[in-house]
Design a protein around this nucleic acid. Sequence first.
DNA 1: AATAATTTTTAGACTTATCTAAATTTGTTT
DNA 2: AAACAAATTTAGATAAGTCTAAAAATTATT
Lengths: 218, 218
Amino acid sequence: MITLTEENYIKAIYHLSNNGTENVNTNAIAEAMSTKASSATDMIKKLSEKNYADYKKYQGVTLTEKGKRVAVNIIRKHRLWEVFLVEKLNFTWDEVHEVAEHLEHIKSDKLIDELDAFLEHPTHDPHGDPIPDKDGNFQHIDKIVLAKANIGVAYKCVGVDDTSTAFLQYLDSNGIALGTMITVMHKEPYDNSVKIQLKDSEIVVSQSVAKNLYLKKI
Amino acid sequence: MITLTEENYIKAIYHLSNNGTENVNTNAIAEAMSTKASSATDMIKKLSEKNYADYKKYQGVTLTEKGKRVAVNIIRKHRLWEVFLVEKLNFTWDEVHEVAEHLEHIKSDKLIDELDAFLEHPTHDPHGDPIPDKDGNFQHIDKIVLAKANIGVAYKCVGVDDTSTAFLQYLDSNGIALGTMITVMHKEPYDNSVKIQLKDSEIVVSQSVAKNLYLKKI
DNA sequence: AATAATTTTTAGACTTATCTAAATTTGTTT
DNA sequence: AAACAAATTTAGATAAGTCTAAAAATTATT
């Protein structure tokens, strides 16, 4: 049996490793899990013993195929629950994350398959992140970050990197949501802020905003 | 903070105490929790320290008002999720219990209030058990057990005591569901079995079935 | 290449919920 | 009311996940 804590570590490693592709170091895991490096080391050893991860002392970890399958399955559940919360239970996109963190650990294949069907097989969650299918395959969007968008080109907002309440509420209050049309008017080299044109307004966003907003050419 | 284990003990005590009205002894709790009496003693002490229960050594436990509130809230969540699973996700009434055991521990007032609204404030779960409202008030049905029903009177099936898969599947295969009309034809004194008339059939059920099926006069 | 700084691991301790085995209390019988 | 049986509690251990403090390995700097 896999424990809740093991699942959370696996998920953290998956995200830190850029979807299972890179090596992750102990401190990064400890930080992501809000714990100490010594605790992370203990858990890494355990995950390695259980074949969820490959680990050599002082060399960091990578997830095994088995570990990646666990991670992707949790992500699938997390994102499906997020869609449910927003579409059926009137949650806003900044409210869903915390509850989905708990719902994602409920273990029932029937539950998640039926939820998927009930929601009509959504492909993206409320933050624009792709939802893996039953076999773990993602539908990839080729998105770029606002900071790297070209001036004068029309884009559509397709996702966020930061899903914190503060950031999502900032976007809401500035009239930016998934699907919002955005044209880049000017990039200020001094502080890397970006002036963008929305439907009815023109606003300037800071570099940290520009780095966390994903766009797609239309 | 209340732990998952504490919640499960409180729920078990609530059910064993006949909705918080009676004193419960240690062995009964241990048995209900599939654990040993010594473990139950430890937890009872802890619940008592945290003011969820009143406890005197060797005298059994009762839930405090605070403990009862916790129990009723978990029952509310459990039953609402059961309705969701049956009505929206195509679960059958014998499949819901196990998943609901996990869903009931998710802590979010908004989640449960919105779920309640989404389901249009159901008053009973798929087994006929009443769903407490937000304030913990039940809508009581005055039901009787089949074993005590009167001969020749028409009843409607309104619930079950035993929610095991075996029992529910037995009912399904004999054409008995919530709402099914039942008339008692004969009670056999020898083994306490009961002959009942359904819409298109007449069947004999054993005493153990007759003790677990709730009816209401129509 | 030697030393300093950083990262990672080890060692030992703590907490929660569990167990077994022994001790204690309550109840039941004769 | 003494003795036995049953129920309950205590004592001491264990496993999971965490911590602090110290040791070891790696990486960076001079």
